[in-house]
């Protein structure tokens, strides 16, 4: 009960602010003399979205597929890579600088190269999304694997715990908390990079839809796509946060009695 009231107290200020901003926006366009092709009003964006809803959902479906494949693949690769680099220290010294380097190549530059190599299908775009996603996961996981409480590490080594058991019992569980902060960043990146990938070469997906709409002077459709992209990003983030809460139940706080 107290929790519900708390939640409500948290929700209403931003909700009211958002509603006020929307009303202001609508008023500015309706009475403020802003050209609708420059900035469409919220109401007309919604009207347009409803009008092209089936097409919009088609494109959304394509983007969701790309984003999920890239996110899942990138996360798996990031997870595996972190474990590998952690368990083989010399490999870490070799590969870590290359990893950082890989993140300094802008994705708009990688995309045409991938298209050149792998064509116009789903694969090069999924790889692009995966490349963007794996990095925060690898970095977060690695730092989690490297620094469990030294007291715990000493204790377990003292009683004779081997390298593998130390990894499974101490380092990996400890890294899970870090993994989730990496996953949250990757979740937001995955939507963004999926849209960019679609800009660069396809006629399916929200990215392509935005490009076509903006060239066709239909800004309300561009805005409708933006709203869906933001929603997708929030949804994926929320799913990761939910998974985190379900998986990490041991953490202190959240109404549980302490000490």
């Amino acid at each position: 009960m107290g929790n519900k009231r708390n939640l409500w107290a948290k929700i209403w200020p931003p909700a009211v602010t958002l509603a006020a901003l929307l009303a202001l926006w609508q008023a500015a366009v309706t009475w403020g003399g802003i050209d609708p092709w420059l900035l469409p009003a919220p109401v007309s964006i919604v009207q347009e979205a409803i009008a092209v809803w089936p097409r919009l959902m088609d494109h959304t479906g394509a983007t969701v597929r790309l984003m999920l494949i890239g996110f899942a693949g990138g996360s798996a690769a990031g997870f595996g890579l972190a474990a590998l680099l952690h368990l083989i220290p010399w490999l870490r010294n070799v590969a870590y600088p290359l990893l950082v380097l890989s993140q300094n190549v802008p994705i708009v530059a990688i995309a045409p190269i991938l298209t050149m190599l792998l064509g116009w299908g789903l694969l090069p775009k999924a790889i692009l999304v995966g490349m963007v996603c794996f990095f925060p996961i690898t970095i977060a996981m690695l730092s989690g694997l490297e620094n469990p409480d030294p007291q715990l590490r000493d204790y377990f080594r003292m009683i004779g715990t081997g390298k593998w058991q130390l990894f499974w019992r101490l380092e990996l569980p400890h890294a899970i908390v870090h993994l989730f902060s990496g996953l949250k960043i990757a979740a937001s990146y995955s939507v963004l990079s999926a849209v960019v990938a679609e800009w660069l070469g396809t006629n399916k997906g929200l990215g392509a839809f935005m490009l076509i709409s903006s060239k066709g002077f239909q800004p309300d459709r561009v805005y409708a796509a933006v709203i869906i992209i933001v929603t997708l990003s929030l949804l994926l983030f929320g799913l990761v946060a939910l998974a985190e809460r379900l998986l990490i139940r041991w953490r202190p706080g959240s109404g549980e009695l302490t000490k």
Partner: peptide
């Protein structure tokens, strides 16, 4: 290593394992 049992300064219990789980893990190790 592994010839002693050990009580460290700080308890060194894994926060993600239950009390019983912590003891059982150490005993199996």
């Amino acid at each position: 290593r592994g010839h002693i049992s050990y009580v460290p300064q700080q308890s060194a219990l894994l926060p993600w394992r239950t009390v019983a789980g912590n003891i059982e893990l150490s005993l199996t190790i």
